[in-house]
Amino acid sequence: MAELLVIRHAQASFGADNYDQLSDLGHQQSELAGEALRTSGWVPDRLVTGSLTRQHETLASMGFAEPPEQHAGLNEYDFHDLLSVRFQGNVPDPVRHDRKTHFRTLRETILEWQAGGLAGARESWKQFSDRVENARRFSTDTTARRVLVISSGGPIGELVKASLGAPDAQMMALNLQVKNTSWTRFFFNASTFLLHEFNATPHFSTPDRAKMLTFS
């Protein structure tokens, strides 16, 4: 079967006015991920990303200069919008700037969203899950044997959840575990889509690199 390797973007700029760009550490993480991929001998013959800057910057810093194909279904859900809807446009400062508070609140918000709440959000839970599935079909409708995808934590959690037939709530439990530049690998053919590896970071396996591991 063919392989779909989905890598989460590197560390973005948490708390900055423009989150959608890599931090200096994010560029270093990407370089290490690309180096590890080449060392393993895994050479992609198709590149796919979403349309987000942090996804494109990750691919470029990994050492892939050629323009990828794009599918917006690989983009993250708009957590800024979801939080704004939940707090009626007045998101508390700790939710915006304190990591622990942010991710605890985000989990609660996504579960509410999945249950049909947050009326007025730009995207419903069903629209999100449908577009991720469309992106999966797009990425696997190919004669390529090794497809490299750069995506985000939410879509990766949803891809894994769907491949296992797990409940919707499991998506967020998976989402919060996904490390920056981690590898999630699937095997696929025309009738099968199987999870083979989740959230691997071989490029951070040594003690000096372990401190470079991040989740946002």
Rank of each mutant, 00 (worst) to 15 (best):
residue 1 M to F: 10
residue 3 E to S: 15
residue 3 E to F: 03
residue 4 L to R: 00
residue 5 L to T: 01
residue 6 V to P: 11
residue 8 R to G: 03
residue 10 A to Q: 04
residue 10 A to L: 05
residue 12 A to N: 00
residue 14 F to Y: 09
residue 18 N to S: 15
residue 19 Y to F: 15
residue 19 Y to D: 07
residue 20 D to L: 06
residue 22 L to R: 01
residue 24 D to S: 07
residue 27 H to V: 12
residue 27 H to D: 10
residue 27 H to I: 11
residue 27 H to G: 11
residue 30 S to Y: 00
residue 30 S to H: 03
residue 34 G to F: 00
residue 34 G to L: 00
residue 37 L to G: 04
residue 38 R to Q: 08
residue 43 V to N: 12
residue 45 D to W: 01
residue 47 L to E: 01
residue 51 S to D: 14
residue 52 L to G: 02
residue 52 L to M: 12
residue 52 L to N: 01
residue 54 R to G: 08
residue 54 R to P: 04
residue 55 Q to I: 01
residue 55 Q to M: 13
residue 66 E to Q: 11
residue 67 P to K: 12
residue 68 P to I: 13
residue 72 A to F: 08
residue 72 A to K: 13
residue 74 L to Y: 03
residue 78 D to W: 08
residue 80 H to S: 14
residue 81 D to Y: 04
residue 82 L to K: 02
residue 84 S to Q: 13
residue 87 F to G: 09
residue 89 G to R: 13
residue 98 D to L: 12
residue 99 R to C: 09
residue 103 F to P: 01
residue 104 R to M: 10
residue 105 T to H: 08
residue 106 L to V: 03
residue 108 E to Q: 15
residue 109 T to H: 03
residue 113 W to A: 04
residue 113 W to V: 00
residue 113 W to G: 01
residue 113 W to Q: 05
residue 115 A to I: 06
residue 115 A to Y: 02
residue 117 G to E: 04
residue 123 E to P: 05
residue 124 S to C: 11
residue 128 F to K: 01
residue 133 E to W: 09
residue 136 R to N: 14
residue 138 F to G: 04
residue 143 T to E: 15
residue 145 R to N: 09
residue 145 R to K: 15
residue 151 S to F: 00
residue 153 G to V: 01
residue 153 G to L: 06
residue 154 G to S: 13
residue 154 G to A: 02
residue 158 E to I: 01
residue 159 L to D: 04
residue 162 A to Q: 09
residue 164 L to C: 08
residue 164 L to S: 05
residue 166 A to N: 06
residue 170 Q to R: 14
residue 170 Q to D: 10
residue 171 M to S: 12
residue 173 A to V: 14
residue 176 L to M: 15
residue 177 Q to W: 01
residue 181 T to C: 13
residue 185 R to G: 07
residue 187 F to W: 11
residue 189 N to K: 07
residue 193 F to I: 08
residue 198 F to M: 02
residue 198 F to W: 14
residue 199 N to K: 06
residue 200 A to F: 04
residue 200 A to H: 12
residue 203 H to L: 12
residue 204 F to G: 03
residue 213 L to K: 06
